[in-house]
Each structure stands twice: as C-alpha cells, then as structure tokens.
Design a protein around this nucleic acid. Structure first.
Lengths: 330, 330
DNA sequence: TTGTAAGCGTTATCAA
DNA sequence: TTGATAACGCTTACAA
C-alpha cells in the first residue's frame, strides 16, 4: 500500500534525528559533509518526497500562488500561464492551477480549493466574480491580481488592457477604410466580449452608423464563426465588414468567405482579436488586435510576489495596452 | 495582513469548542439545530475557508487526484480533463492540475509538487518519463494512470488507444484510394508522434512504397503545417498524399494548398489526427482520426478512484480504440 | 555540528 | 449533544 517515507524514517535508518535530515534539505552547508553524504544516499534510496502539509500548518508562507484560468484550450491563457511561470520559477514559487470553464460558481469553488491549500496569493483571469468570491477574497487579505481586462473596482490589483478602447480603435480603422456596414460577431457572452462590443458600438455610433451584432451564447469555435457569418449575411444588407470578438470566429468566417467566393477584404473586411497563430496561415492573413498576454502574466506574477513580500504596488491597476496587426484581411 | 480564520476563532466567538465547529462541517446532523444555526452565521460572517493542511497530515486520504497534461492550449487535453472532472466531481474528489510543456524534467518537478500535496493518485497524459519519475512513482505505491497512449510497461495502469494501429489504418485508407507518394508530417517529436510514424511506415512498406517523413522539433501549429508541406513538396516528387500527426498541421497544410491552388483531395489527399473542430470548418472538411479523449478521461478517473478505494482494476491496460472521420479531404 | 521541545489546525477517539 | 485529548510531520528556537 501507499507507504509514505518521512524524515523520521530516513533519520532512523541512519541513527540520527529528523532535524538533521530536515537541515540537509533546507541548508545542506550546515550539515557535516560525511553526514550529508549518508543522508543523500538514504534519500535517494528511499525515494523521499517532501511533504508540504506540516509547513502549511506553521505560519510560514507556502510559496505557492494559485492561478485560475477559464479554459484549458486557449492559447491566450496558456501564454498567460507561461508568463506567470517565467517569474514564479525564477522567484522560487510554485503555482497551483485550476480552470473555471467561464463559470463563476466553478471559479468560486476552485478559489476555495486553492485557498484551502494555503496559497500565498492568487491570479485570476476574469473580473466578474460571485458575491461570495469577492467576500472571501477581501476578507482573506490575500494578494489578488485580476488580469486580462481592467475592472473598475478591482478586488486588489489588476493587470490587463482596455478591451473597449482596443475594439474602438480596430473598428475605427475599418471605418477609415471605407467600411460602413460592419457587423460584430460575438460568442460566449463573457465580460471581455461585451467590452469589445461597447468599443465597437461607440465607434459605429460616432461615425453615424448603426451597430449590428450577431451573438451566440455558445463557446466560440471556427464552426461558430462560419455560422455567425452566415446569419449576419442573412440578417443584414450589404455587410462589408466583420469585427470578431476573437480569432477563432474570424478564421471560421474567413473560411466561409473562401467557400462562398466572397473576396476578403474587397467584398468583406474581417478583423479578429488576439493575434493568434492561426490567423497568419490564412490567405489573406488575418488583421487582428494583438494582446500582450505573456507580458500580462509576467507583470501579474511580479505584482503578487511583491505584495507577498510586503512591497505592495503603488499603482494597483496596470494597463499594458495592445497593438494592431495590420494583416491583409482589412 | 493575511489573517486566516481558524475553527478556533469561530468557536471562541460562540463560546463553544472547535470540535463542535468541525463537526458542523463534517456531519451537521450531529450538532444541535440551535448551535448549528449560530455556527452557520459565524462561518458566513468570518469568511472561513477550510484548511486542508492538518487533514493532509493525518493518514487520511486527501481525496485529491493530481493531473499532469503537457499543454494548456490543446483541445485534446482539455477534453481529457473535462472527462476526468465529470467523475471526480461526482465522486467528491478534487483535482490538482499541472502542465509539463512536453518536458520530462518539468513533468518530474510537477509530479513531485503534486505528491508533496499528498494527492491520493495521479493521472499522467504521457508515457515517457524520467528515470527518477518512474522510481518515485513506483516507490510511492500511489495509483497512477498513464493515458492517451498504451505503454508496453505501464507504471501502474493505462488507458488510451493504439496510435500505431490508428495511423496504420488511416494510411491504408489513403493507399486504397490510390495514393502512393504519401508524406508524413511530424512536429514536436513526442512519443505519440513517433508511434504514428511507425504505423505510417508499416502501411507504406506493406504496400511496397517508401515512407517519407518531414519533421520539425518545434511545437505544431498551423504555420508549421504550411512550412512542412512546402518542404515536402520541395523535397519529394509527385507527392499525392499527406498524413499529419495532428489536425493543426493538416489544417495549415490544407490552407497552403488553397493558397497555391492545389486541389484537395484530387491533387493531394490530406488526413489529420484527433478530429478537432477546426478541421470541420475547412472546405473540403478534413479527414481525420477521432480519438476518444473524453472517454479516456472518464475511464482514467474511474480507475484511479477505484484503486484508491482498494478495488484495483483486474485489467490494468484499457484500449478505448479510435474511429475515422471520413471527411472530404481524402 | 547535532539534538530537544514546542507548535501549527484539524479530526478520530473516547469521555462526559 | 458537546468537550478533552492526542496525533499527524515538519520547522523554529534554543540548547548542548
């Protein structure tokens, strides 16, 4: 059966105390070379694995940060986690990862789970939370970074970009190229999707055009992109531009154009969001807004760790901006 | 500062002992209704979060399963995790998630980390491990399921499919459609990619043709699919079929054909692997091998949990097979 | 350089 | 129905 090896077990084998073995792990230079050697061998032989539970019980830090992302199949969040781990690895922190499936109740459960493991801080990649989530996070006093978008009232700290402004700029670019009947394609109506819609609508109204949105509550996917474009073409007249809430939809839409012989961008301009690899394989290449997700991860990790170390950031909200990949589809 | 609320704190507020509060959580029916009510309020007020550390120290189960996947941006593994969580949620287990980036050293570190949290079992989605990983897992006696492919010598249990056989069947289908100069496109040379290559080569030799592989050590992506196809067309003469180690490459390759005006499947047949959504948006739709990844997750979780409950599976290796999505690209 | 003792927060067990 | 006690395995602080 499962027989965990303890420090005591190793100490017993060698006729020393567990304290010396413990020291061997934490500060080997304070153990006599001969003893060190003996312990090294015994550790190797026994396959000892450090047990964090006792350390979690003392008031000491766990040196672990909890990370919650909405999806396990989205390059945006894998880049975010990559960025986070660059820093946590360098700083000697571990991360504990959980995913919420874009569901606030699930997010709440996962945050509680992570907290039950005594994480020292949390990085969340959404900004809309259940009432209880906000309560337990505030009460805990734990450093929390909400990232990707910038909440008006962050729980603690935030790192991201202004999605409304990004969408506004993208749609303005489309308008300045002469497009006027631009439709917004939206999926999974999360907060970022709605913010982008606001930016889109603002740009349209400002130019004197009427915003037209086609949305689905389902997960976005290439197939959804095709379907939404079909609907858009059926619903609205003389559509000459499509602004998509992400690249998956945009690629699906572009695919549909190819299948139908619609010329991009002459007949229909298409702009995506996130600047993923897939858009660059298309012909024409996809125009898209590039979000600095790796940098967001890096900055988020720095902020949590600084806060854990008692150096709380003076500016709790960091806007890392965005850029525009011109591409050929506009 | 971070001021964790303990059971003792709540008990003190109410003038009772922490034991009663503990009971309130584990078996509320054994606490007097009046007391129960008082505790409920105090718990809510204080934002108490369960602390797992002490429980991890007793010999009791943690009711947590560690899961290691290679990538956070691959639908294959998100579906696997979905399958796992269907079961763990139902059975009252939590999962602790980690990702290895397809790196055995990272996998080793993550497994150690998960074990340091006293997980009751592990689900790994790769079958090649470092020496030390195999050692510590064996010595721990922990239930371990390796999934996706079927190792010859599993550490403990395994759930997956025979990738070599799947590739063999797919390539045979291509051959039976008259294709003879079929090139295999490979990326990130992990074990599954190599197994598929074996199946491909076996089918080719058996038909009297010479296998031709174009490989890159880099992560697969749509862009890589384009590049590899370019190379294949430059390197080999009269290529009439492409078998790809996954759908990303296949879609990139198909995209390249569209850009060049190569007709699929007339001039070039393309077959992918995994049956992801993206392939279905293409015109023609992508022919692909469909892997039962959600079912693999479900079965894996069942097996670990059964083993934890002392009901070790009699058959430690489960083959869940595969199917073929005919599509239009063949 | 190594050892001793106390304590972390919860739960199992036994007692009232 | 509630309480007292011990135990889990490690680390901190102190002692030898």
């Amino acid at each position: 059966m499962t027989q965990r090896v303890s420090l005591q077990d190793i100490a017993d084998q060698l006729g020393i105390t567990k304290m010396t073995v413990s020291r061997y792990f934490r500060s080997p230079e304070r153990v006599a070379p001969a003893t060190r050697e003996k312990i090294a061998q015994a550790v190797k032989r026994s396959g000892y694995i450090h047990n964090r539970a006792p350390a979690l019980m003392s008031k000491a830090l766990s040196r672990t940060i909890g990370v919650v992302i909405p999806s396990l199949s989205n390059q945006v969040f894998s880049a975010l986690v990559d960025g986070i781990e660059t820093i946590t690895n360098a700083e000697g922190f571990d991360i504990l990862l959980a995913h919420s499936g874009y569901d606030q109740q699930v997010e709440e459960r996962k945050i509680e789970m992570l907290m039950s493991y005594q994480v020292d801080g949390l990085i969340l990649s959404e900004t809309e939370h259940s009432e209880r989530t906000r309560t337990i996070l505030s009460q805990s006093g734990l450093p929390v970074v909400e990232c990707m978008e910038l909440p008006e009232t962050p729980i603690d700290m935030a790192v991201g970009l202004n999605h409304k402004a990004a969408a506004f700029e993208a749609v303005n670019k489309m308008i300045s190229r002469g497009k006027r009947s631009i439709v917004y394609l939206a999926a999974r109506l999360d907060r970022r999707t709605l913010l982008r819609q606001q930016g889109y609508e603002q740009a349209m109204w400002q130019a004197g055009y009427t915003p037209q949105t086609i949305a689905t509550p389902f997960q976005s996917s290439f197939t959804q992109g095709m379907n939404l474009l079909k609907q858009a073409l059926d619903t609205y007249d003389s559509v000459d531009g499509i602004f998509c809430t992400n690249d998956d939809l945009a690629v699906g839409a572009m695919q549909h154009c190819k299948n139908l012989g619609i010329r991009v961008p002459e007949d229909l301009a298409i702009v995506g969001y996130n600047g993923l690899d897939v858009g660059q394989t298309m012909q024409p290449t996809l125009s898209s807004i590039i979000t600095p997700r790796q940098a967001i991860g890096i900055k988020s990790a720095h902020m949590v760790i600084d806060a854990i170390n008692g150096k709380k950031a003076t500016t709790p909200i960091i806007d890392l901006g965005f850029s525009f990949n011109n591409g050929q589809s506009l």
